[in-house]
Design a protein around this nucleic acid. Structure first.
Lengths: 120, 120, 120, 120
DNA sequence: GTGGTCTAGACCACC
DNA sequence: GTGGTCTAGACCACA
């Protein structure tokens, strides 16, 4: 796994897990990798993964069972969508539109790029 | 001037100056506020503004004259647009599209929000 | 470490590090002293070393890993040589030759001094 | 007149005057431009030229007559040569040689550049 | 532990 | 007046 330097690694790992959940690669109540396993998997310090799990747990996306591990919450997808959409419409979109106007980018240009982009 | 806590203040000041230039509130070769003046103006430490100016100078957006002050570079607008557009199309847009698909947001919804938004 | 008063300390520290790299005292991807360690080592304020590292990072000579430290870039030697040679041939040498002619110094005199000098 | 940003303008002006003297464009006891004239000539603040003249006077290269102006000292050429040569052999050459060895530049390369350079 | 940022205040060279 | 540099010390996020 490659990390951008501009964003905290623990956040990037969290996003990665959220995307997996959204793509149904994890089922509800499915056990996810242990902190140590994931740490080795993505080559970071276990503390960093612990931080990720703590962060996801705060948001109710995963839950832990002491001595066993971390599990995907039942309504994880709902919660992720709620959180991300809220942020998307409140922060990301206004910022996007402001930049478009400042940079003189037409909406039609956006549409063209969108239809052409197929990577998910 | 209000600052968000998530981003470095010196960057926010730099962005603010760039936006002013893009809006033609500064002419080419026009002298901008001195470090101390701007520091008082936005209520930060002069060192912080110095960091902003140093940062903008690196990018060729402003230049300095010894003992006189900082000035807007001739092709400042061009440079800002180049930098911001490059980042916009390389990073911001792909990220936007990826999120839209993950969150199940239709493009038509985007268009609606755009036409309704008028803040610049 | 002794500093000349005429040049910024953070630049002198940077030059010192570059020379170490050129002399192969540092390997590629080797971790260099932390900001605080080097600050104590050369008896300056940590901020000054931070400035040095930031300066070297801009030039691609070192890179950083969040929360871990700074490391020597893979092609650090190449980059240093490129930067220094470019400056040497573009600025230093013409200035040298101009001065020699102005001061009436023969090239043979230069050669004699060179062969006699052994300090590196 | 064009100025490099890296060196103080008053020093660059002083060097320029010294070179003129070395090229015999000024005679002994010849009056040089007044502070205001030269300031207009090279487009700088008169204070800066005043600083230049003060600097040259300290070194005995020019002298002033109150109310009349500044004049080239009798032994100006001798003094300039003395100062510059001393600096050249004590500071510039050792620094040059050190850099050559660090950068792996052969002396023969220097010789070639020298014979080819004809600009004075 | 690491680096990043900010403040406060100082001194300097330069214009 | 201008910017440049340095110190001291603080707080923060991150690994």
């Amino acid at each position: 796994m490659e990390f951008k330097s501009q964003q905290a690694i623990y956040i990037q790992i969290a996003d990665h897990i959220c995307e997996k959940i959204l793509r149904n690669e994890y089922q509800s109540d499915e056990k996810i990798l242990s902190i140590r396993e994931l740490a080795i998997d993505v080559s970071v310090n276990p503390n960093t993964v612990a931080r990720t799990y703590e962060y996801l747990e705060e948001q109710g996306i995963i839950y832990k069972q002491r001595g066993i591990g971390y599990f995907v919450a039942k309504d994880a997808i709902t919660k992720i969508l709620l959180l991300k959409k809220e942020c998307f419409f409140r922060e990301d979109l206004p910022w996007l539109f402001k930049n478009m106007r400042l940079l003189g980018i037409e909406f039609s240009e956006l549409q063209e790029k969108y239809t052409r982009s197929t990577d998910i």
